[in-house]
Every structure is written in structure tokens, then in C-alpha cells.
Computed example of a mutant assay.
Amino acid sequence: MAHYFEIKKNKAGEFVAYFKYDSETIFWTEGYSSKASAKNAIESILKNGPGAEVRDEA
């Protein structure tokens, strides 16, 4: 699959969820103190993201 989420620890020891496409990071979440919280962030993105509107303010 060309796109995926990846959870890694940052330098501060927090868990961060990265969304990647062809191994390139597209966006990432804030740092969380637990891996479960990072997984919850991914679930929220998957649940709420598909219906998000696009705002073009250029």
C-alpha cells in the first residue's frame, strides 16, 4: 500500500503518528505520552477526515 500511518517516538520520548505516502511524511500529529493516545488520534483522523471540507483561502 502506498499510504500508511506509522507511530514512532520523538526525541522527547512522546509517541507521534505520521501519515506517509510512498515513504514521504505528509503530516504528523502532536506528541502523546502513550501509544494508545497516538492510535486514538489515527482512529479519529480515519473517522472524521473523509468528510472534511476543503477551505481555499488563497
Results as ranks from 00 to 15, higher is better:
20 K>D: 02
58 A>D: 15
1 M>L: 12
47 K>R: 13
23 S>F: 11
45 I>Q: 01
50 P>S: 09
58 A>R: 15
22 D>I: 10
48 N>L: 10
47 K>M: 05
10 N>E: 07
37 S>G: 11
16 V>A: 01
54 V>Q: 09
48 N>P: 02
6 E>R: 13
8 K>G: 02
31 G>A: 05
23 S>P: 03
50 P>K: 06
30 E>F: 01
2 A>F: 06
56 D>E: 15
57 E>G: 07
40 N>D: 08
54 V>F: 09
28 W>Y: 12
23 S>R: 14
36 A>R: 05
11 K>N: 12
25 T>I: 13
12 A>C: 04
58 A>N: 15
22 D>C: 09
55 R>Q: 11
49 G>T: 06
13 G>P: 07
45 I>Y: 00
5 F>P: 00
28 W>M: 11
24 E>K: 12
15 F>G: 02
4 Y>N: 10
54 V>K: 15
1 M>T: 12
16 V>C: 03
4 Y>A: 09
8 K>I: 11
2 A>K: 10
57 E>L: 14
14 E>A: 11
16 V>F: 01
26 I>S: 04
47 K>E: 10
24 E>M: 11
12 A>I: 04
14 E>I: 05
5 F>T: 03
40 N>I: 02
29 T>W: 00
56 D>T: 14
19 F>V: 02
17 A>K: 01
23 S>A: 13
35 K>I: 07
54 V>P: 02
28 W>R: 12
30 E>V: 06
9 K>C: 10
53 E>H: 14
51 G>C: 04
51 G>D: 06
22 D>H: 09
19 F>K: 01
24 E>I: 11
48 N>E: 13
23 S>G: 09
57 E>H: 12
45 I>R: 01
20 K>T: 03
35 K>Y: 05
58 A>L: 15
16 V>D: 00
31 G>S: 08
31 G>W: 00
13 G>W: 03
13 G>R: 08
1 M>R: 10
56 D>G: 12
9 K>P: 04
2 A>C: 06
46 L>C: 10
6 E>K: 15
36 A>Y: 05
6 E>P: 02
12 A>N: 12
47 K>P: 00
4 Y>F: 13
46 L>D: 06
44 S>Y: 12
16 V>R: 02
2 A>N: 10
39 K>A: 04
25 T>G: 05
28 W>N: 10
37 S>E: 15
23 S>H: 09
52 A>V: 08
18 Y>G: 04
11 K>I: 06
15 F>C: 00
44 S>W: 04
11 K>Q: 11
28 W>Q: 13
16 V>Q: 02
5 F>K: 00
5 F>I: 03
4 Y>H: 11
14 E>W: 05
42 I>M: 01
32 Y>E: 03
32 Y>M: 05
5 F>D: 02
20 K>F: 03
22 D>W: 08
30 E>H: 01
50 P>D: 06
40 N>T: 07
41 A>H: 00
34 S>F: 09
26 I>W: 08
18 Y>P: 04
24 E>R: 08
19 F>I: 03
23 S>N: 13
32 Y>H: 08
52 A>F: 08
27 F>C: 07
13 G>H: 06
48 N>R: 13
54 V>T: 13
23 S>C: 07
39 K>E: 15
46 L>G: 04
6 E>S: 14
1 M>E: 14
58 A>C: 12
11 K>D: 12
4 Y>Q: 11
40 N>C: 04
58 A>K: 15
41 A>Y: 01
43 E>W: 13
